[in-house]
Nucleic acid binder design. Structure first.
Lengths: 125, 125
DNA sequence: ATTAATGTACTAAGAACTTAATACAATAAT
DNA sequence: ATTATTGTATTAAGTTCTTAGTACATTAAT
C-alpha cells in the first residue's frame, strides 16, 4: 500500500497513533487479530523493524498483546480502550481550545465554524 | 530559559510553529523586532544553527524578514498574517473534527465539552 | 517429523537532525 | 576609524530514526 507518512515526526510514532486511533475508534475490534509484523510492514510500506517498534509500544500501553506464534491481537479490556479514548479526546480538546483561543477566536465563533464544517464533512451527526 | 521541546518532532519545526503562532496571535506585533539569532537560541535553549533554520523558514513564508545587520522583524503585511491565521485555524478545525468524529463523538457532545472546558480555561469569552 | 508462520533479536549502514566551533560580510554605534 | 552586533555560511561530530539483512525460538498446520 505504501501509506504516505509525514516527515514531521518519526514514522514509528505516526504508526502508533494510527493504530491506536483505529482501536479506540472501534475499527479494530477488541480481540481481533492484527496483521503480522511483516504484513503490517508491507501494508504501510515501512520496514518490519519499524512496525515491530510501533507494536511493541502499543503492547506496552496494553492496547495489544502478542501470543508467541499465533500473532497479535487487540486487547479485550474494554475499560482500557475506553480510558485511552477519553484521554485522547481530552487531550485533543484541550490543545484545540488553547490554539484557537491564542489565535484570538471566541468560543461562539469556534462553535459556529465547527457545526458548519462538521455538516460539510459528515452530515448532521 | 531552556524551553522544553517534545521529542516527537524536530526542534526546528516546533520552533517554527511557536513563533508562527505568536505572530498570528498578535503577541509578536507586525513590524516589531525579533531577538537576534543568537539571543533567540539562548532564549529557547537551542543551537544558533537550529534557530537560524527556523527563522529562515519563517522568512520563506514571508512572516518575517531580515535587514542585513539591524536584525529580523515581523512582516508588516497584515493580509499575509491574517491569511496564515485563517489557514491555521481551518487546518486545526478540520483535523479536530476528523479526529473526534472517528472516535465516535457526536457534534453536540463535542460542542458541550468545548464550551465547558473553554470556560474552565479562560472564562466565558 | 516436517514445514510454515509467528514474534523477537541482532548488527550494520545510511539519512536526518542537532550541536559545536569558527569564520565572514555588512552596518549601526562609538 | 574602530568596535560591536547582526545575518549568514561552513565543517565536523554525535544522536536518533530507518532500512536491510539475517537469524533464532515457538507453535500451528501438514
Amino acid at each position: 500500500m505504501a501509506f504516505e507518512f509525514s516527515g514531521d515526526s518519526p514514522i514509528y510514532l505516526q504508526l502508533i497513533r494510527m493504530i491506536r486511533q483505529r482501536i479506540v475508534a472501534g475499527e479494530l475490534a477488541p480481540g481481533s487479530k492484527l496483521p503480522s509484523v511483516r504484513d503490517l510492514a508491507v501494508e504501510y510500506g515501512v520496514n518490519p523493524n519499524t512496525a515491530q517498534r510501533s507494536l511493541a509500544e502499543l503492547e506496552r500501553e496494553g492496547l495489544v498483546y502478542a501470543d508467541r506464534t499465533s500473532g497479535r491481537f487487540v486487547t479485550r479490556e474494554l475499560g482500557l480502550i475506553e480510558k485511552v479514548r477519553k484521554d485522547l479526546a481530552s487531550e485533543q480538546i484541550a490543545q484545540f481550545i488553547q490554539q484557537m483561543q491564542s489565535m484570538g477566536f471566541e468560543s461562539e465563533q469556534v462553535i459556529t465554524i465547527i457545526l458548519e464544517k462538521w455538516r460539510e464533512q459528515y452530515g448532521n451527526h
